[in-house]
């Protein structure tokens, strides 16, 4: 695409982000120390990538989670919040524990989707070690299979407080 076409496309498209919904209620108790800046590391420990797609949509231009001060980061060492999706499989148990250990305090861990919260249909599978709360303390949950981007946005707004 030529530069002039790109400029015209930008001018024609304008703003894609939807208007921000009303503030999403009480701020999460453990989030006060973050003071309006939330860096998120996404950890998939055995999900079906449905939750991953919804999280990606929440950070996309339509829902624009970044406008509330929430950002996806490339390293657990930069993160304040870990979003964990899927049921914990045997092979991903150690990476999950290492990721939590590598995240500086104060940190929050969120279980996203029914599989991460209760296991869903995967409970008792031969490759399944358990659900997220069996191994690491879970601070907040986002139920749904998968949850809608708007619900993920609302949950993370309660942490960033914006």
């Amino acid at each position: 695409m030529t530069t002039s076409k790109l400029i015209r496309l930008i001018a024609r498209t304008g703003r894609i982000a939807e208007p921000a919904p009303e503030a999403a209620g009480e701020r999460h108790a453990g989030a006060r120390a973050l003071r309006g800046s939330v860096h998120v590391r996404y950890v998939d420990v055995g999900g079906a990538t449905d939750c991953a797609m919804e999280i990606a949509a929440a950070f996309g231009p339509v829902y624009d989670l970044e406008r509330y001060g929430v950002r996806l980061v490339a390293s657990a060492r930069h993160a304040d919040v870990l979003l964990v999706t899927g049921v914990v499989t045997r092979n991903m148990l150690e990476p999950l524990l290492l990721t939590v250990e590598a995240t500086p305090r104060p940190r929050l861990i969120g279980a996203v989707g029914d599989a991460a919260i209760g296991g869903g249909p995967f409970v008792g599978g031969y490759g399944v070690a358990g659900v997220v709360s069996d191994f690491v303390p879970v601070d907040f949950e986002i139920p749904g299979s998968p949850p809608e981007p708007a619900e993920i946005v609302a949950a993370l707004r309660r942490i960033s407080g914006r």
Binding site: G14, R15, I16, A17, D64, E66, R67, G69, R71
Partner: peptide, 8 residues
């Protein structure tokens, strides 16, 4: 320019 609202 990306059509986002931006974090301020």
């Amino acid at each position: 320019l990306e059509g986002r609202a931006g974090a301020g």
